[in-house]
Simulated scan of single mutants.
Amino acid sequence: MRTSPPVEIARQLSSACEVIERNLAGTLQAIHLFGSAVDGGLKLYSDIDLLVTINGPLAESVQRSLMMDLLSVSAWPGTSEAYRALEVTVIVREEVVPWRYPPMREFQFGEWLREQLGTGIIQSAIPDHDLAILLTTVRQRSVCLVGTPASELFDPVPKESFVKALSDTTAQWNEESDWQGDERNVVLALARIWFSISTGEIAPKDVAASWVLERLPHEYRAVLMVAQAAYLGTVRDDLAGRTKQVASFVCYAKAMIERICASY
C-alpha cells in the first residue's frame, strides 16, 4: 500500500483538493485518497477515488458549485492527457459515527453524472449501503490528503454490516439490462465481492479476479479472464458480445456469494 499519492496524479490531486477546500471551507473535516491510486496501482482507465468528510449537510447551492467546479478538474476515462476521471464521495461524519446501516451519503460526483450536471440535476442525500464497503476500504488502505487519518476519524464497520453491504450490492444484478454496457465492471465487481465475502479483505480488481479464477469452474473462466485482461489493458474488451457467457458467469458468481452470505 502506498503512503503518498502517485507522482503522475499529483497535479490533478492538488487541483481537486483546492476545489474541494474552497467550496467546503468551514465544514471540511478530511479528504482521503483510496482505490487504485493507493492499492495496486493506477491502470489505464482507473478513476481517482476521493472520500470527502464534512461536519454537516450542505446547501444545494454549495453542492452545485462544488460539482460544477469538479468538472473542470476531471475527464472521462481516456479522453484527456492531463486528467483522469474523479469519483468523489461526500459524507457527513455524524451520519456514519456512531455507525448505523444503511448509512447516508450526502452526495457523489463522477464522470457518469456529467450530462446530468450540465442540465442542472443534482442528486440529493440518499442511504447508500456501499458506504460500508467504502469505509472499510478507506480504513484499511487510504492516504490522508487533508485532515485526520481514516483509522482515527471513523469507527470500524461491523462485520455484519460489511457482509450485508456485499449481499445488497450483489442483489442489484438480476437480468441482462442490469449490466448491459457495463459488463466488465460488473464481472470484476462480483469477483471482488466473492473475494471479500470469503476472506474479509478488500483487494484490487485484478488480484481478486486471480483469486476467483483459481476457484472457478472452467466454463465460467473465459468471461473473467477477458474482464481482468481488459482492465489491465492487454486485450480488447469484447464482453458486450458474449451475452450468454456473461449472464452465466453473473448467475454462478451470485449463487456462490449468496451461499457464503447465508453461512454468516
Rank of each mutant, 00 (worst) to 15 (best):
A222G: 10
T243I: 14
W211R: 01
L190I: 10
A165E: 08
E201V: 05
D178P: 05
A240R: 15
E201N: 08
A203K: 06
D168H: 06
A208P: 05
Q245Y: 09
Q172D: 11
E214N: 11
A227C: 05
V226M: 07
L239E: 05
V187Q: 00
H218Q: 11
T243E: 08
R184I: 03
Q228I: 03
H218P: 07
L224K: 04
E176W: 14
D168A: 02
V235D: 12
V163D: 05
L188E: 14
E201M: 09
L166K: 10
S196W: 06
A208R: 04
K205A: 08
Q228N: 10
V223F: 04
Y220P: 01
Q180N: 11
E201W: 10
A189C: 15
V223W: 04
S196G: 11
D237T: 02
A203V: 14
G233K: 06
S198Q: 09
S210K: 07
G233N: 09
V226G: 01
A208C: 12
F195D: 00
H218I: 12
T243N: 05
K164R: 14
W211M: 08
K164E: 10
P217A: 14
A240L: 15
F195P: 00
L166G: 01
G181T: 05
R192C: 05
W179F: 12
V207C: 12
I193W: 01
E183M: 09
A171S: 15
L188P: 07
W211K: 03
W194G: 02
W194E: 00
N185Q: 10
A227Y: 00
E175W: 03
M225C: 13
N174G: 12
E214F: 03
W211H: 06
D168T: 06
A230I: 03
L232G: 08
A165N: 07
A240H: 15
W179K: 02
A171E: 11
E183C: 08
A240Q: 15
L213H: 14
P204W: 00
M225A: 08
R236F: 00
T170S: 01
P204T: 09
E175P: 02
Y220K: 01
R215D: 11
V186N: 04
W211D: 06
G200V: 13
V163P: 03
L216W: 01
R192I: 01
T170H: 00
T169G: 04
G241A: 15
P217G: 06
L232T: 14
Y220C: 03
L216H: 03
I193R: 05
D206G: 13
S198P: 03
V187L: 02
R215N: 07
L190H: 09
V223M: 06
D206Y: 12
N185S: 14
E176D: 15
S210M: 13
R192E: 01
I193K: 05
G241V: 11
H218R: 12
R192K: 09
Q172E: 13
R242W: 12
V235M: 09
A240M: 14
D237L: 02
A240N: 14
D182N: 15
W179M: 08
V207E: 06
A171M: 13
A209C: 05
P204A: 05
S210H: 10
D182H: 11
V163L: 12
T199M: 07
